[in-house]
Amino acid sequence: MLLPDSLANNVRWPTIRLSLQAASLAHYAVEAAEPVATVQSREIYVQALKLHRRFIRENMGSAMFPSSIALTAVVSNVILAFFEAVRCSHVDAYGFHVSAAAEILEIIGPEQCRSGLLNQLFFTLRSQMAFVSFIRHTPFKLATEEWAQVLFSDQTAKPMSERVMDSIIVLLQILSTCDTAESFDVQDVRISVFHIHSQLEELWTAYSGSGTSFDQALISVAAPDSPINQNPVTILTTVYFNCASLILSHLSAAYMDDHLADITSIASCASILSGIEYLEKKSIGCAYMRMMLPLVLIGLQSPEVGQRRFAREKLQTWRAQRWMSGLCTVSLHHLDNYVKLARDDSMED
C-alpha cells in the first residue's frame, strides 16, 4: 500500500508517521530479536496512540469532516492494528483498531471506496473485520450487499478469493446470530445455507474447471489429482473454499440434521491445514495474517480432537517463532475463552 506524501508527512498531525515508526520498529524488533527496539517501539506506539486519540477528538467530533481527515484516521488505525498484530499490547487492541477503521469507512461509504487508497484499505480491512467480528461476537462491519459490490479499482470482477470471502462473511453472520441471538428462525437458516451452498457450488465449478462438485472437491490441495494448479493465490482461494464448507457443515449438522456433516468438516479442515502448510513452507508472509480465521475456525469447529489440537499448536508455534505473534495471542485467547465457556456450560447442565 503506497501512502501519499501528504498523509505520511503531515506536519500538524504526524499520526501516520508515528504509527509507521512504531509498527516498523516492532517488526524489526521481532525479526532481529532486539529487546531495545521492542521497548522503543512500544514507547512510540503509546505516543502515536495518544496523538491519534487527540486527532480523532479534535477533527471528527462532528457529523461532517473532510475526506483527508477520514483517510488519515483510517490509515492510522490500520497501521496501529498492524503493530498489534506483530506485538500484542492487549488482546482487545487489535480488534479495536480494525473496528475503528471499518467504522470510519462505513461513514465514508462504499461509493468512495471503489478506487485509489480507500479501495486498498477496504480490501485490507474486510477479511480482518470478519475475523474480529467472529471472535468477539460483535456486529459485522463492511458486510452489507453494497459493500460486497465493491470491486478492485483496476478490475471489472473480483478475484475468486474475494468472491468466496463474500460467502464466508455471510456465513459468519449467520453463525454469529445462531450463537448469540435469543431467538431466530431455523427455517431462515436452512434456506440461507442451501442458497449459499448453491452459490459456492457454482463458484467452485467455474474456478476448478473440472467436473468435481464442491462437496467432492474437499481434497488436500497437495493431492496429485487436485484440479487446481498449486501457487500461493490458488492455495489461498482453496483454503477459503474449505473455510466456507466448514461453516456450512457446522450449520448443516446443527440445523439440517446432516449426518454426513462431520465427515465433510474433517475433510475441509484437512484441506485447510494442508494449504497452511504449503503457504508456510513457501514463506508467504501475508499468509500468517490471512490464516488466523481458518485456524480459529478449525480450533472451534473441527469434530476431530487432533485437528483442533493441531490448529492450536500451529498458533502457539507461530507465536513462539514471532510470526504475527500478536494475532496468535489474540486467537489463542479467544479459543481459550470458548473452551472455558463450553466447560462452564457443561458443568451447569
Score class of each variant (00 low, 15 high):
218 L>P: 00
80 L>A: 04
347 M>I: 04
27 H>C: 05
310 F>R: 10
190 R>S: 05
162 E>N: 06
30 V>R: 15
76 S>P: 04
281 K>Q: 05
96 F>R: 13
196 I>D: 02
115 S>N: 13
170 V>T: 14
17 R>G: 01
189 V>K: 02
93 A>H: 15
265 S>N: 11
123 F>N: 03
67 S>R: 14
61 G>C: 13
267 A>R: 14
216 Q>L: 08
45 Y>S: 03
182 E>S: 06
51 L>I: 05
233 V>F: 09
93 A>Y: 11
25 L>Y: 03
213 S>N: 02
115 S>A: 14
338 Y>K: 12
201 E>S: 14
63 A>Q: 15
275 G>P: 02
30 V>D: 09
245 S>K: 14
289 M>T: 12
208 S>L: 06
166 D>T: 09
341 L>D: 07
171 L>E: 04
193 V>C: 06
282 K>H: 00
307 Q>T: 01
19 S>V: 04
223 A>L: 01
297 L>G: 10
101 A>K: 08
213 S>D: 13
246 L>I: 13
178 C>P: 01
29 A>W: 02
301 Q>C: 13
133 S>N: 01
117 L>W: 00
291 M>F: 05
190 R>F: 11
108 I>E: 14
88 C>V: 13
119 N>A: 07
187 Q>E: 12
321 Q>T: 15
347 M>R: 05
293 L>Q: 02
113 C>H: 05
